[in-house]
């Protein structure tokens, strides 16, 4: 009986069918089924509301600078210049999820990565007057949840970062540093958003920042000889986000590292501008660089600020706690 004999081919079908049936019996699909149901139920039952606008804060004068700086950084470090490579393969949010999982693994490696961050305001958003709303450029180092950035907004230069303990800090000059005492979850939304984005921490970026977004991949495409995957994040139907309308991730297909991240930001529903993160270096710079101490002089004044808004029942945190290094 040769390989093409009908009985033999039929026997093959029988073996394959039995094999697949057996595999299905052995596989524990309960976790996946629960995941599918949970997502579906959340999309059908969740109230589809936009994030309520944060109340206007009335910070004490001594805290205003810190708040303004943080806002400026959030604005500045929000991203970017458009880059869209060729797209020629079918879109797939499934492959997007796979790509992002690989990206997550790549960004878990103990490597410090350096990104150039450019903010290009939308002409409707920036009238050329308020310097804090204007174009800005910064250099961002990031590893895991840590980051530090050298930010230039108009004539103002500012360093900002988050250390291994999650403490957010800023330094307007070598003689002065500020530590923000809030936990990440207590920070104003804009600042928290900037921290999550700037740390480039997957899955924080994907699960938190882009939680309300549909992810779709386009790629691989070839740009300057390097194969890249593009992942677009667009708001899910009926969802809204207070700060972001669209995101684009350009990922090196070989190393799974984010080469470029573009965020289309919004302000009260109107286009605010684009923020672009472009990978410019990878190196090992050490833990110390993510700490405030590495960026201020010995003996510099260190203030402690609280970014959370005061509640009526508690006195406003008007006075920063000053200290010397």
């Amino acid at each position: 009986m040769n390989d093409s004999h009908p009985d033999k081919l039929e026997a093959v079908d029988h073996l394959v069918a039995r094999y697949l049936h057996r595999q299905a019996e052995q596989i524990d699909a309960t976790r996946l089924a629960a995941r599918v149901r949970a997502q579906w139920l959340s999309s059908t039952t969740e109230p589809q509301m936009s994030t309520p606008p944060t109340k206007e804060r009335s910070p004490a004068p001594s805290r205003r600078w810190a708040q303004r700086a943080a806002w400026a950084v959030a604005t500045t470090l929000l991203l970017f210049a458009g880059f869209i490579g060729g797209r020629h393969l079918a879109s797939s949010s499934a492959s997007a999820a796979v790509i992002l999982r690989d990206v997550h693994s790549a960004h878990l490696q103990d490597v410090d990565r350096c990104y150039r961050v450019q903010f290009a305001p939308d002409p409707k958003y920036w009238d050329g007057k308020n310097q804090f709303k204007g174009p800005s450029e910064s250099v961002l180092w990031t590893r895991g949840d840590r980051f530090w950035a050298d930010v230039q907004i108009a004539k103002i230069r500012l360093l900002i970062g988050r250390d291994e303990e999650g403490t957010l800090w800023a330094s307007p000059s070598p003689s002065k540093g500020i530590r923000f005492t809030d936990r990440l979850s207590d920070l104003p939304e804009e600042v928290e958003f900037a921290c999550r984005v700037n740390s480039m921490s997957l899955p924080a970026l994907v699960e938190d920042v882009l939680a309300d977004f549909d992810l779709r991949s386009h790629g691989p495409s070839s740009h300057a000889g390097a194969a890249t995957n593009l992942v677009w994040a667009n708001l899910k139907p009926g969802r809204s986000h207070r700060l972001l309308s669209t995101a684009l991730l350009e990922i090196d297909a070989r190393s799974d590292v984010i080469m470029r991240l573009v965020l289309w930001t919004i302000d009260e529903g109107e286009p605010k501008g684009t923020i672009t993160f472009t990978l410019i270096d990878s190196d090992t710079i050490g833990d110390a660089q993510y700490r405030l101490e590495a960026h201020v002089d010995a003996g510099a004044t260190i203030e402690r600020h609280d970014l959370t808004r005061p509640t009526p029942a508690s006195p406003p945190a008007a006075s920063p706690t000053n200290g010397k290094l």
Partner: peptide, 9 residues
């Protein structure tokens, strides 16, 4: 799992 999850979605 990711692919099947997405297809169900």
């Amino acid at each position: 799992e990711d692919l099947v999850h997405d297809c169900y979605g």
